[in-house]
Design a protein around this nucleic acid. Sequence first.
DNA 1: CTCTCCCGAAGTGTCGACACCTTGCGATCC
DNA 2: GGATCGCAAGGTGTCGACACTTCGGGAGAG
Lengths: 237, 237
Amino acid sequence: MTVPDLMDLPDLRRELLFTALRGVEGGSSLAFTIFQEIAVGIVEGRLPPGHEVNSAELARRFSTSRTPVREALLLLERESLVIIPPRRRPYVSPVDMAQVREIYEIRASLYALVSELLVARASDAEIAGLRRWQGLLESDAACGDVDAYFWHNVGFRNAEVSLAKNGELQRRLSSLGLQMHRFRHLSLSLPGRLLHSVADHERLVNAYADRDAGLAAAVSRSLVMRGYRAIERAGGV
Amino acid sequence: MTVPDLMDLPDLRRELLFTALRGVEGGSSLAFTIFQEIAVGIVEGRLPPGHEVNSAELARRFSTSRTPVREALLLLERESLVIIPPRRRPYVSPVDMAQVREIYEIRASLYALVSELLVARASDAEIAGLRRWQGLLESDAACGDVDAYFWHNVGFRNAEVSLAKNGELQRRLSSLGLQMHRFRHLSLSLPGRLLHSVADHERLVNAYADRDAGLAAAVSRSLVMRGYRAIERAGGV
DNA sequence: CTCTCCCGAAGTGTCGACACCTTGCGATCC
DNA sequence: GGATCGCAAGGTGTCGACACTTCGGGAGAG
């Protein structure tokens, strides 16, 4: 957990997006670099859904051969960011509202699990550490700094997950998170949402401190689903 | 769900193992074939943990070039069946008890979610369809046919998942399932386990029919965790 | 003017080759 | 004899090439 809140936002961003995925890159780190580059482009919206990402052009742009690019595309496909139809050009996968719902349902369930495991396994000191993130969230919300709030929120979640001490779960949630970041901008546009969220986080940390697994799980789940409903109300994708 | 119970067991097996993963093969179907071949070898235990799977030899065995084999290895890595250290030979990933626990925790949570969603979304007819699988399980348990019981159990779970109508969830559970099948033989060795399991399945289907989401989720979760505890008691891996 | 067919441009899957790296074994040295 | 070094065998990551397929536009028929 080091001291990620001291990092500036761009570094924090890449850090949070990819940490749990590193080490799964399949040997070739060149492919992983290309993968990151394109992945960031997709989640930032620079590469919109449907946009072609053909291996030949990418190979030229990165001045490598097509082999590492193909590997990168396979990694992107495994994160559901890209679709590779046989014998046809790969393209950035579309996001429809149904899929957003599916992903949020899974995330709600898994974060509830995180909360349960955390209550059972985290030390008091570790739980106290979460309060630092919560403090950041509060000050961000007070300033109305939506972007900082979002990324510190991601940091909070990551800290939670690592306290659940389940590496497999961490990897799966990270993978889901990458895909979810594509429509994040939709979920924080609504006013009042930040304050709701701050209150929920406080309730959550208190439940952790009280070692109330049931309550923590319930709050976690409702926190995620509230995010989904915000997107839904904002008119979907 | 067609009529999978009419298929003979070997077909059913491959079908159940890979259906949800098909379509994610990344264009090259040659790579997917190799992937399946090796994956089956691993989950059947023919390729034990630690066994080397280097691309050069595999290319010779399948009489292709190394490129499709490398792709297959990447797919295997994404399913956590193989580890690919940089610049070193890939090998079948070891399974330690901690990881087994991690996977079962996730599966318990996700199957609880499946049950909730199923109650909300499946039609009465679809739920009635589950009773057919349950019937198979009962007769298998009566005969003491452990192998048939296992695979029909997998079929039952698959049917449940597809009734939850969440494709993303289906894919993630299928991926977890593939890895889990590596230590399945451990979980059904204990006597009396089949009867317990049959009773649980009946309770589960009844909860579905009663549209009792809370009960169904609880039974689902306990069903999975009972499997884990069976492995644990059997002395782990 | 529209539809069809054809052909060239360009991309995909696969291949064999190459430089670099790891590994295991045998010669060498203490 | 046991540890150390070096070298050959073989694997890995990357590359450029090739056949086949798809895509898009332009010639030609209706």
